[in-house]
Amino acid sequence: MDSTALIVTVAGLGLAAFVLWYFFFSARQTASAVSTSGGVQEVAITVKGGYSPDVIEVERGKPVQLSFYRDEENSCSEELLMPDFSIRRDLPAFKTTLVELLPQQAGKFEFTCGMGMLRGSLVVK
């Protein structure tokens, strides 16, 4: 193995390790819902190649209003799925779509795009 191959090997393995860490183990952006005076927990989420924030904390038993603003035309994000709440919604591009739900149980509930590629989760406490 010559020195170039050695460099490529080390760099490649390093890159692979970075990919694994970056996508699976690094810290995520978490946001807690803001309760309005009416007791509705509101969270604004921007959809652009992913959901930001992508971990949303809400309280159990209080209505939640998520407003998804889809800031792109990419077809990947055109649908929003929250299977645990039986929600499938089309998100029009550059518009805000409101999704209302009432979390009854504590737990972590995933939401994804139509193909399950973009992911976020609703953490109910």
């Binding site: 190649g49 992913g50 990419n74």
Partner: peptide, 14 residues
Amino acid sequence: ESAWNGFKHRAANM
């Protein structure tokens, strides 16, 4: 664009 936006969110898609 989509790949870059996803990368910023630590998300990878097709």
